[in-house]
Design a protein around this nucleic acid. Structure first.
Lengths: 344, 344
DNA sequence: CTTATTCTTGTAAGCGCTTACATCCTGAAT
DNA sequence: ATTCAGGATGTAAGCGCTTACAAGAATAAG
């Protein structure tokens, strides 16, 4: 039994117990190959016997490396970030790193605080979402020499390392699908664009698609809402209350949560989807494929994005200089919520 | 400008720049009230000017306090944990603490690894989900003197600090609702019970309710599935394929995700909910209230649970000995997916 | 104008670990 | 045998910070 006076065993204790120096214990912990098997075994026995657990702070202080990577995401509520984070986590764990997760609730100021807290905790790298940030956030990261990468967005001229996809292009393509079906009055229930470049880009994509057909997005047909089912429902009702000549026959929703809300409200109002109204989403949540009808949406490579982001950071930590720009493809998933407009 | 040779400013640099000792700088950082305003101001100016960021590892090492609390949850996918985690996070942030989040994917062995990683990172406290753990996990926590609390479950005889609710009782009550409507053949789509006491308790609650009416849960009417929409759909189909005399007229689902799957599959099969089949869930996800029909389910106080858990840990860290047992109430939300059985 | 008391600030000893560097072995080559 | 290379250990100097404790300054009391 270890010394009972609630003194946690430290390297020195193990060293003494095993009759070696602290350096040797440190080696069996960090580069076992450098220690002769016999000795190593003796040390490992003591480690187990005394229930030794590394003191991460001391290790970080002495080695200037915390073996920790931070990720700052907008919200935990969305399963879409969940799968990306899971992917990051798996990769990091494989490499002996721990993920520290923080949430901003789509608030850039809060993001700054979280990033600062993570830097104070000594993360060796950082994963961010999107291109919109408080400039101070990135400055701090640079100044601290903390490698970072932004995700969920890719633009050719991105000023910072990024792994993501082209939000505008994806929105453009799914809108083109709507246009090809013959819709001309398209409504948009977007996410809140302030501090959210993805939401803005998606709107831009819709507008571009419309423009290519000489169409316009009517001012009243664009609504910004937080990403919640109830908000999607509200927005849908608002849109359907518009006068006949501008009321949309098809809807682009900023993400699947809003789209699900819109579909549910439509059904609640007795409208048939897609016969009376077509609705598309963005993100392809696990639920989306299961709804009746299945939601037509943009599939986003969140898992792969997470893996790439983790690999990029790990490579940077390892002293490499990986390609700082990484564009992933998106897929348009045509399911049951889109059809030709009714001939009313 | 700070010394350009990418030497991050440290306490000593600030001290020198401000013409004071490191102790004083440390004080303006940790207990500003102890420093004369004039001096404090001078130090703060330098901190801003040099872009100083605390070195958390050094601080943790010197003070034996990391200002960090760990939370280990089964999954990120479920919005229900998300809201609890958010609550924890808010409370901790208010208190100057940072939350370190880890995920187990419902694997107790993985949970052990995560807890160990967090302890190595020096968390000052830990929040766990449920009562099922690898004994080694709790032993490590005790041995390290790391205060912890389990959530999402409460039993009068809980051997460890816990803040949660009575899963069996809640399941019992919502089953009673089904029985009161006149159902006698009740099916259960449970979560995977291995390593998940909540799933087991919920089944136990259903059985107890049945027993109180001299009814039994038919062996074939109990299916365990991972918490996924598609699994709920599969299980539902299996249950409906049962022979007439045992096919359930009402379903208890281990959580809302499974219930949503069941409802969607029912509608997909052309069955009317609740006319042809009643379905209840557990957890009351944000989506559940919005479905058509609204899902009858158990509302769980996840937000309050998170707050209580955080407060408990913070109190422990502060040297207090708060009540280690905390029972929260659940609510049965009767919505649209339950009705009397049809007279077939 | 002392002397006791209270505030401020500085001094310096670690916290537990990693890691150059020094030292000591081992065994192969001479 | 003797020498030497190379591998296996040990030694000890910090990493950046907190915090007793000491010391000095300012205030209150006598």
């Amino acid at each position: 039994m270890p010394d009972k006076q609630n003194h946690l065993p430290n390297l020195q204790d193990i060293a003494t117990a095993a009759g070696v120096s602290t350096a040797t214990v440190s080696r069996v912990l960090n580069s076992p190959a450098d220690v002769r098997p016999a000795l190593r075994e003796k040390v490992e026995v003591q480690i187990r016997k005394l229930g030794y657990v590394r003191h991460g702070a001391a290790r970080a202080l002495a080695s200037a490396r915390s073996h920790t990577v931070g990720a700052v995401i907008p919200t935990l509520e969305s399963a879409i970030f969940a799968s990306g984070v899971n992917a990051v986590e798996n990769r990091l764990t494989e490499a002996g790193y721990t993920l520290l997760l923080a949430v901003t609730n789509y608030d850039l100021q809060h993001e700054y605080e979280q990033v600062k807290a993570l830097i104070e905790r000594g993360v060796d790298g950082m994963i961010l979402v999107g291109r919109d940030h408080d400039p101070a956030t990135l400055i701090m990261l640079e100044r601290q020499g903390c490698p970072y990468v932004t995700t969920w967005t890719y633009t050719a001229d991105a000023p910072h390392p990024c792994v993501g996809f082209d939000n505008a292009d994806a929105a453009h393509r799914i809108t083109a699908h709507l246009l090809a079906l013959g819709h001309t009055r398209i409504g948009v229930i977007a996410g809140i664009t302030s501090g959210n470049d993805r939401a803005r880009e998606r709107i831009a994509g819709v507008k571009a698609a419309l423009k290519s057909q000489q169409l316009n997005l009517h001012r009243k047909c664009l609504i910004e809402k937080p990403y919640e089912v109830s908000e999607g429902r509200d927005a849908f009702r608002t849109l359907m209350a518009l006068p006949n000549d501008i009321r949309p026959t098809a809807l682009f929703c900023g993400n699947d949560v809003l789209a699900v809300g819109a579909v549910l409200e439509a059904q609640h109002m007795g409208l048939k989807v897609p016969q009376n109204i077509s609705i598309v989403g963005f993100d392809d949540l696990p639920l989306s494929a299961h709804m009746s009808p299945g939601l037509t949406t943009v599939h986003v490579p969140s898992r792969r994005m997470g893996e790439h982001a983790a690999d990029y950071i790990l490579a940077c930590i390892g002293g490499e200089s990986p390609d700082p720009r990484n564009k992933l493809p998106t897929d348009i998933m045509i399911r049951g919520t889109t059809a030709r407009p009714s001939k009313t």
